[in-house]
Nucleic acid binder design. Structure first.
Lengths: 132, 132
DNA sequence: GTAACCTTGACACGACCGTGGTAAGGTTAC
DNA sequence: GTAACCTTACCACGGTCGTGTCAAGGTTAC
Protein backbone atom coordinates (compact mmCIF):
# COMPACT_ATOMS: atom_id res chain seq x y z
CA UNK A 1 0.00 0.00 0.00
CA UNK A 2 2.18 2.84 -1.18
CA UNK A 3 -0.78 4.83 -2.50
CA UNK A 4 -3.70 6.38 -0.67
CA UNK A 5 -7.40 5.98 -1.35
CA UNK A 6 -9.50 9.01 -1.98
CA UNK A 7 -10.55 9.61 1.61
CA UNK A 8 -7.01 9.22 2.88
CA UNK A 9 -5.76 11.55 0.20
CA UNK A 10 -8.50 13.98 1.12
CA UNK A 11 -7.34 14.01 4.71
CA UNK A 12 -3.70 14.68 3.97
CA UNK A 13 -4.32 17.29 1.28
CA UNK A 14 -7.24 19.19 2.73
CA UNK A 15 -9.41 18.71 -0.34
CA UNK A 16 -12.71 16.89 0.01
CA UNK A 17 -13.13 13.59 -1.84
CA UNK A 18 -15.72 15.33 -3.97
CA UNK A 19 -13.21 17.97 -4.99
CA UNK A 20 -10.50 15.42 -5.69
CA UNK A 21 -12.79 13.86 -8.29
CA UNK A 22 -13.59 17.29 -9.67
CA UNK A 23 -9.92 18.23 -9.88
CA UNK A 24 -9.26 15.00 -11.72
CA UNK A 25 -12.00 15.84 -14.19
CA UNK A 26 -10.28 19.19 -14.82
CA UNK A 27 -7.24 17.21 -15.86
CA UNK A 28 -5.12 18.69 -13.06
CA UNK A 29 -4.27 15.42 -11.38
CA UNK A 30 -4.56 11.87 -12.65
CA UNK A 31 -4.29 9.21 -9.99
CA UNK A 32 -3.71 5.60 -10.93
CA UNK A 33 -6.57 3.17 -10.58
CA UNK A 34 -6.71 -0.15 -8.80
CA UNK A 35 -7.90 -3.14 -10.81
CA UNK A 36 -11.32 -2.54 -9.35
CA UNK A 37 -11.35 1.11 -10.36
CA UNK A 38 -10.39 2.76 -7.06
CA UNK A 39 -8.31 5.91 -7.36
CA UNK A 40 -4.81 5.49 -5.93
CA UNK A 41 -2.99 8.69 -5.03
CA UNK A 42 0.80 8.39 -4.99
CA UNK A 43 3.29 10.81 -3.42
CA UNK A 44 3.45 12.81 -6.63
CA UNK A 45 -0.27 13.40 -6.72
CA UNK A 46 -0.38 14.28 -3.04
CA UNK A 47 2.38 16.85 -3.40
CA UNK A 48 0.69 18.28 -6.44
CA UNK A 49 -2.60 18.61 -4.63
CA UNK A 50 -1.01 20.44 -1.73
CA UNK A 51 0.84 22.90 -3.94
CA UNK A 52 -2.31 23.36 -6.00
CA UNK A 53 -4.01 24.81 -2.98
CA UNK A 54 -1.14 27.24 -2.53
CA UNK A 55 -1.21 28.23 -6.17
CA UNK A 56 -4.90 29.02 -6.07
CA UNK A 57 -4.69 30.98 -2.84
CA UNK A 58 -1.55 32.95 -3.63
CA UNK A 59 -2.47 33.85 -7.18
CA UNK A 60 -6.19 34.19 -6.57
CA UNK A 61 -7.00 31.62 -9.24
CA UNK A 62 -9.91 29.28 -9.79
CA UNK A 63 -9.55 25.62 -10.65
CA UNK A 64 -11.03 26.19 -14.07
CA UNK A 65 -8.38 28.78 -14.81
CA UNK A 66 -5.53 26.44 -14.02
CA UNK A 67 -7.24 23.78 -16.12
CA UNK A 68 -7.46 26.27 -18.95
CA UNK A 69 -3.79 27.18 -18.60
CA UNK A 70 -3.02 23.48 -18.89
CA UNK A 71 -5.12 23.22 -22.03
CA UNK A 72 -3.27 26.23 -23.43
CA UNK A 73 0.01 24.49 -22.80
CA UNK A 74 -0.95 21.14 -24.27
CA UNK A 75 -3.12 22.14 -27.21
CA UNK A 76 -0.94 23.75 -29.84
CA UNK A 77 -3.77 24.87 -32.06
CA UNK A 78 -5.62 26.47 -29.17
CA UNK A 79 -2.52 28.23 -27.87
CA UNK A 80 -1.58 29.55 -31.28
CA UNK A 81 -5.10 30.76 -31.98
CA UNK A 82 -5.27 32.64 -28.69
CA UNK A 83 -1.76 34.04 -28.98
CA UNK A 84 -2.37 35.20 -32.52
CA UNK A 85 -5.44 37.05 -31.44
CA UNK A 86 -3.78 38.60 -28.41
CA UNK A 87 -0.70 39.68 -30.28
CA UNK A 88 -2.66 41.75 -32.78
CA UNK A 89 -3.24 44.26 -30.04
CA UNK A 90 -2.21 47.91 -30.38
CA UNK A 91 -1.72 49.23 -33.94
CA UNK A 92 -4.39 51.87 -33.45
CA UNK A 93 -3.45 55.34 -34.72
CA UNK A 94 -1.67 54.08 -37.83
CA UNK A 95 -4.27 52.79 -40.21
CA UNK A 96 -2.92 51.87 -43.57
CA UNK A 97 -0.33 49.13 -43.27
CA UNK A 98 -2.15 47.36 -40.47
CA UNK A 99 -4.92 46.06 -42.68
CA UNK A 100 -2.43 44.14 -44.72
CA UNK A 101 -0.86 42.26 -41.91
CA UNK A 102 -4.21 41.76 -40.25
CA UNK A 103 -5.52 39.83 -43.22
CA UNK A 104 -2.25 37.96 -43.34
CA UNK A 105 -2.62 37.01 -39.69
CA UNK A 106 -6.17 36.06 -40.39
CA UNK A 107 -5.12 33.74 -43.19
CA UNK A 108 -2.54 32.21 -40.92
CA UNK A 109 -5.22 31.56 -38.38
CA UNK A 110 -7.48 29.96 -40.94
CA UNK A 111 -4.67 27.74 -42.12
CA UNK A 112 -4.12 26.56 -38.59
CA UNK A 113 -7.76 25.86 -38.02
CA UNK A 114 -7.99 23.97 -41.28
CA UNK A 115 -5.01 21.90 -40.28
CA UNK A 116 -6.58 21.22 -36.93
CA UNK A 117 -9.76 20.06 -38.58
CA UNK A 118 -7.87 17.83 -41.00
CA UNK A 119 -6.26 15.77 -38.25
CA UNK A 120 -9.44 15.75 -36.22
CA UNK A 121 -9.91 14.60 -32.62
CA UNK A 122 -7.52 11.72 -33.23
CA UNK A 123 -4.76 14.22 -32.78
CA UNK A 124 -6.16 15.58 -29.57
CA UNK A 125 -6.04 12.18 -27.92
CA UNK A 126 -2.62 11.46 -29.38
CA UNK A 127 -1.21 14.73 -28.13
CA UNK A 128 -2.46 14.19 -24.64
CA UNK A 129 -1.44 10.60 -24.11
CA UNK A 130 1.89 11.56 -25.58
CA UNK A 131 2.50 14.42 -23.22
CA UNK A 132 1.17 12.66 -20.16
CA UNK B 1 -15.46 60.54 -38.63
CA UNK B 2 -12.86 57.83 -39.12
CA UNK B 3 -13.92 55.95 -36.01
CA UNK B 4 -17.28 54.43 -35.13
CA UNK B 5 -19.38 54.99 -32.06
CA UNK B 6 -20.49 52.07 -29.99
CA UNK B 7 -23.77 51.43 -31.79
CA UNK B 8 -22.15 51.65 -35.19
CA UNK B 9 -19.39 49.34 -34.05
CA UNK B 10 -22.02 47.00 -32.68
CA UNK B 11 -23.72 46.82 -36.04
CA UNK B 12 -20.63 46.01 -38.03
CA UNK B 13 -19.21 43.51 -35.57
CA UNK B 14 -22.32 41.65 -34.47
CA UNK B 15 -21.70 42.31 -30.79
CA UNK B 16 -24.28 44.26 -28.83
CA UNK B 17 -23.26 47.62 -27.36
CA UNK B 18 -23.68 46.01 -24.00
CA UNK B 19 -21.17 43.31 -24.88
CA UNK B 20 -18.71 45.79 -26.36
CA UNK B 21 -18.52 47.49 -22.98
CA UNK B 22 -18.18 44.12 -21.28
CA UNK B 23 -15.38 43.06 -23.63
CA UNK B 24 -13.60 46.31 -22.91
CA UNK B 25 -13.84 45.68 -19.20
CA UNK B 26 -12.23 42.25 -19.78
CA UNK B 27 -9.29 44.14 -21.25
CA UNK B 28 -9.72 42.50 -24.64
CA UNK B 29 -10.20 45.72 -26.59
CA UNK B 30 -9.37 49.32 -25.74
CA UNK B 31 -11.14 51.85 -27.91
CA UNK B 32 -10.02 55.45 -27.84
CA UNK B 33 -12.27 57.97 -26.17
CA UNK B 34 -13.58 61.25 -27.47
CA UNK B 35 -12.98 64.34 -25.33
CA UNK B 36 -16.46 63.83 -23.97
CA UNK B 37 -15.81 60.20 -23.09
CA UNK B 38 -17.47 58.44 -26.02
CA UNK B 39 -15.82 55.23 -27.15
CA UNK B 40 -14.34 55.47 -30.64
CA UNK B 41 -13.73 52.19 -32.44
CA UNK B 42 -11.09 52.32 -35.15
CA UNK B 43 -10.44 49.75 -37.87
CA UNK B 44 -8.09 47.84 -35.61
CA UNK B 45 -10.70 47.43 -32.91
CA UNK B 46 -13.36 46.43 -35.39
CA UNK B 47 -11.18 43.77 -36.93
CA UNK B 48 -10.24 42.52 -33.49
CA UNK B 49 -13.87 42.27 -32.47
CA UNK B 50 -14.79 40.26 -35.53
CA UNK B 51 -11.93 37.82 -35.12
CA UNK B 52 -12.75 37.56 -31.44
CA UNK B 53 -16.10 36.06 -32.28
CA UNK B 54 -14.41 33.54 -34.53
CA UNK B 55 -11.86 32.69 -31.87
CA UNK B 56 -14.53 31.99 -29.30
CA UNK B 57 -16.69 29.90 -31.59
CA UNK B 58 -13.93 27.90 -33.23
CA UNK B 59 -11.98 27.17 -30.09
CA UNK B 60 -14.99 26.81 -27.83
CA UNK B 61 -13.73 29.53 -25.51
CA UNK B 62 -15.45 31.95 -23.17
CA UNK B 63 -14.60 35.64 -22.93
CA UNK B 64 -13.25 35.12 -19.45
CA UNK B 65 -10.85 32.50 -20.72
CA UNK B 66 -9.38 34.81 -23.34
CA UNK B 67 -9.13 37.48 -20.68
CA UNK B 68 -7.28 35.03 -18.47
CA UNK B 69 -4.92 34.11 -21.30
CA UNK B 70 -4.18 37.80 -21.64
CA UNK B 71 -3.46 38.04 -17.92
CA UNK B 72 -1.15 35.06 -18.24
CA UNK B 73 0.74 36.82 -21.00
CA UNK B 74 1.04 40.17 -19.24
CA UNK B 75 1.59 39.12 -15.64
CA UNK B 76 4.98 37.49 -15.31
CA UNK B 77 4.52 36.39 -11.72
CA UNK B 78 1.22 34.75 -12.47
CA UNK B 79 2.48 33.02 -15.58
CA UNK B 80 5.57 31.70 -13.83
CA UNK B 81 3.57 30.42 -10.88
CA UNK B 82 1.14 28.56 -13.09
CA UNK B 83 3.84 27.19 -15.37
CA UNK B 84 5.88 25.98 -12.44
CA UNK B 85 2.95 24.09 -11.07
CA UNK B 86 2.02 22.60 -14.40
CA UNK B 87 5.56 21.52 -15.15
CA UNK B 88 5.73 19.46 -12.01
CA UNK B 89 3.44 16.87 -13.54
CA UNK B 90 4.18 13.57 -11.86
CA UNK B 91 5.75 11.09 -14.22
CA UNK B 92 2.98 8.63 -14.67
CA UNK B 93 2.39 5.70 -16.98
CA UNK B 94 -0.24 7.11 -19.32
CA UNK B 95 -3.72 6.10 -18.37
CA UNK B 96 -7.30 6.26 -19.35
CA UNK B 97 -9.16 8.81 -17.19
CA UNK B 98 -8.08 11.72 -19.36
CA UNK B 99 -10.82 10.62 -21.70
CA UNK B 100 -13.32 11.77 -19.15
CA UNK B 101 -11.99 15.27 -19.22
CA UNK B 102 -11.67 15.24 -22.97
CA UNK B 103 -15.25 14.24 -23.62
CA UNK B 104 -16.37 16.75 -21.08
CA UNK B 105 -14.50 19.54 -22.84
CA UNK B 106 -15.84 18.22 -26.11
CA UNK B 107 -19.39 18.44 -24.79
CA UNK B 108 -18.78 21.98 -23.65
CA UNK B 109 -17.49 22.86 -27.06
CA UNK B 110 -20.52 21.33 -28.72
CA UNK B 111 -22.84 23.22 -26.43
CA UNK B 112 -21.12 26.46 -27.30
CA UNK B 113 -21.20 25.74 -31.01
CA UNK B 114 -24.87 24.84 -30.81
CA UNK B 115 -25.61 28.07 -29.05
CA UNK B 116 -23.63 29.98 -31.65
CA UNK B 117 -25.69 28.32 -34.35
CA UNK B 118 -28.91 29.20 -32.61
CA UNK B 119 -28.21 32.93 -32.83
CA UNK B 120 -27.02 32.47 -36.39
CA UNK B 121 -28.59 35.69 -37.66
CA UNK B 122 -26.33 37.94 -35.60
CA UNK B 123 -23.38 35.71 -36.31
CA UNK B 124 -23.82 36.09 -40.03
CA UNK B 125 -22.50 39.64 -39.84
CA UNK B 126 -19.38 38.31 -38.18
CA UNK B 127 -18.01 36.61 -41.25
CA UNK B 128 -14.24 36.63 -41.07
CA UNK B 129 -13.56 37.48 -44.66
CA UNK B 130 -15.32 40.78 -44.24
CA UNK B 131 -13.04 43.77 -43.93
CA UNK B 132 -14.10 46.87 -41.98
C1' DG C 1 -19.02 -12.88 4.01
C1' DT C 2 -19.61 -8.76 5.76
C1' DA C 3 -18.30 -4.09 7.12
C1' DA C 4 -16.18 -0.34 5.39
C1' DC C 5 -14.80 1.91 1.66
C1' DC C 6 -15.03 3.04 -3.30
C1' DT C 7 -17.43 4.03 -7.89
C1' DT C 8 -20.55 6.90 -10.99
C1' DG C 9 -24.72 9.60 -11.32
C1' DA C 10 -28.17 12.77 -9.74
C1' DC C 11 -30.26 16.75 -7.21
C1' DA C 12 -29.24 21.09 -4.73
C1' DC C 13 -27.58 25.60 -4.02
C1' DG C 14 -25.13 30.03 -3.62
C1' DA C 15 -21.98 32.75 -6.40
C1' DC C 16 -20.58 34.43 -10.48
C1' DC C 17 -20.83 34.96 -15.87
C1' DG C 18 -22.91 36.57 -20.13
C1' DT C 19 -26.47 39.22 -21.57
C1' DG C 20 -30.42 42.35 -21.79
C1' DG C 21 -32.90 46.30 -20.04
C1' DT C 22 -33.64 50.75 -17.87
C1' DA C 23 -32.68 55.09 -15.49
C1' DA C 24 -30.31 59.49 -14.75
C1' DG C 25 -27.45 62.37 -16.74
C1' DG C 26 -23.65 64.21 -20.17
C1' DT C 27 -22.13 64.89 -25.47
C1' DT C 28 -22.54 65.58 -30.36
C1' DA C 29 -24.29 67.25 -34.64
C1' DC C 30 -26.91 70.26 -37.18
C1' DG D 1 -30.94 74.29 -28.46
C1' DT D 2 -32.72 70.11 -29.14
C1' DA D 3 -32.89 65.31 -30.86
C1' DA D 4 -30.24 61.51 -30.93
C1' DC D 5 -26.73 59.27 -29.13
C1' DC D 6 -23.42 58.33 -25.44
C1' DT D 7 -21.89 57.46 -20.40
C1' DT D 8 -22.04 54.80 -15.88
C1' DA D 9 -24.71 52.14 -12.63
C1' DC D 10 -28.09 49.09 -11.18
C1' DC D 11 -31.76 45.09 -11.52
C1' DA D 12 -32.85 40.72 -13.75
C1' DC D 13 -32.34 36.10 -15.32
C1' DG D 14 -30.87 31.63 -17.19
C1' DG D 15 -26.49 28.98 -17.22
C1' DT D 16 -22.24 27.30 -15.43
C1' DC D 17 -18.83 26.66 -11.41
C1' DG D 18 -17.53 24.87 -7.06
C1' DT D 19 -19.19 22.21 -3.60
C1' DG D 20 -22.12 19.11 -0.69
C1' DT D 21 -25.00 15.15 -0.18
C1' DC D 22 -27.45 11.07 -1.21
C1' DA D 23 -28.49 6.62 -3.86
C1' DA D 24 -27.43 2.25 -5.99
C1' DG D 25 -24.12 -0.73 -6.68
C1' DG D 26 -19.09 -2.73 -6.96
C1' DT D 27 -14.35 -3.63 -4.25
C1' DT D 28 -11.27 -4.51 -0.48
C1' DA D 29 -9.63 -6.37 3.75
C1' DC D 30 -9.96 -9.26 7.43
Amino acid sequence: MDALTIHEAAETTGWSPRMLRYIERMGLVEPERSTGGYRLFGPGELQRLRTLRGLLDEQGLALGEVGFARRLQHDDVLRTAVEDWLEAEPARPAHVPVDDWLTWEQDKHERLVAEAARRADTTATTNLTETL
